[in-house]
Each structure stands twice: as C-alpha cells, then as structure tokens.
Simulated assay, not measured.
Amino acid sequence: MANTKRTGKSRILLWLLLLIGAAIAAAAYVYRAPIGGYADVGTAYAARVGCSCRFVSDRSLKDCNKDKLSGMELVTLVDDPQAKSVTARFPLVTSSTATYREGYGCVLEKWEG
C-alpha cells in the first residue's frame, strides 16, 4: 500500500499553488471590466478587419491572421464562406462577428451590452 502521508515539501508546494491560483482568480475578478472591455473592442476590430481581408481582398484566413496587431495573439478568427462572415473570439470572454454586405463592406453585428 502506498504511503499517503504528505511530506513537508509537498504541503508547501500545494499551498503555494493554491495561493497562486487564488491570486490569479482575485486579479481576474478585480480587472474583469477592463479585460471584458478590451476583449470586446479587440474582437470587434479583428472581426471587421478579418472580414475585409477575407471577403473584400479575397485572401485566405491564414493569410489574414498575419495582419493581427501585436497583443492580439489570443484572438482567433473563424470564417463562414456561405454567410460571408468572420467571427473573432477571445477565449472564455467574448466574440464578435462581421458580415460582408454588398455596397456596405463588412458590418459588425449589433453589440449586446
């Protein structure tokens, strides 16, 4: 039967990991409004620019990903060729979609918030 007693070092490591996790959760809670705001604006910008790149310039989505600004590495782009739209997602926070409309270019769908 395995020894289930924790050594002093493993207890310290466990408490340290719990403390780090609690600090990250507290920071995310305190800064949730700015994080959400930047994520909303970032995904809207990426969706509109990605849509224009994909459906106005007729480039591949892989090529359009190269145009993202630095700091937007977490934003992912997904296209829908049938709907002529691009959706930008910031994981676990928000997403925005822009759709190509003849005569208007790429238009963001209405924000709810």
Rank of each mutant, 00 (worst) to 15 (best):
A2E: 12
N3H: 08
N3C: 01
T4L: 05
K5P: 03
R6I: 05
R6F: 14
R6E: 11
K9I: 13
S10C: 02
S10G: 04
I12V: 12
L13N: 09
L13G: 11
L14E: 08
L14R: 10
W15V: 14
W15F: 15
L19S: 15
G21S: 11
G21L: 01
G21I: 11
A23L: 15
A23R: 13
A23P: 09
A26S: 15
A27G: 14
A28E: 14
A28P: 08
Y29N: 12
V30D: 01
R32V: 04
P34W: 06
P34N: 07
Y38P: 01
A39L: 10
A39E: 02
A39R: 08
V41G: 13
V41Y: 15
G42E: 00
G42F: 12
T43V: 13
A44R: 15
Y45N: 14
Y45L: 14
Y45G: 06
A46Q: 01
R48I: 07
G50E: 08
G50L: 01
C51R: 09
C51H: 09
R54Y: 00
F55Q: 07
F55V: 04
V56P: 03
V56R: 12
D58Y: 15
D58G: 14
R59C: 02
S60N: 05
S60A: 09
S60P: 03
L61W: 10
C64V: 00
C64Y: 00
D67F: 15
S70M: 07
S70F: 06
G71I: 07
G71Y: 08
E73G: 03
E73Q: 13
L77Q: 09
P81S: 03
Q82K: 13
Q82L: 09
A83P: 05
K84Y: 06
K84D: 00
V86G: 05
V86P: 07
T87R: 00
R89M: 04
F90G: 01
P91L: 02
P91C: 09
L92N: 02
V93D: 02
T94W: 08
T94H: 06
T94E: 04
S96I: 06
S96V: 07
S96L: 05
T97V: 00
T97H: 00
A98F: 00
A98T: 04
A98H: 06
T99L: 02
Y100C: 03
R101Y: 03
R101Q: 12
R101I: 07
E102Q: 11
E102L: 04
E102A: 11
G103R: 03
G105L: 04
C106I: 10
L108E: 08
L108I: 03
E109H: 04
K110V: 02
K110P: 02
W111E: 03
G113W: 10
G113D: 07
G113T: 10
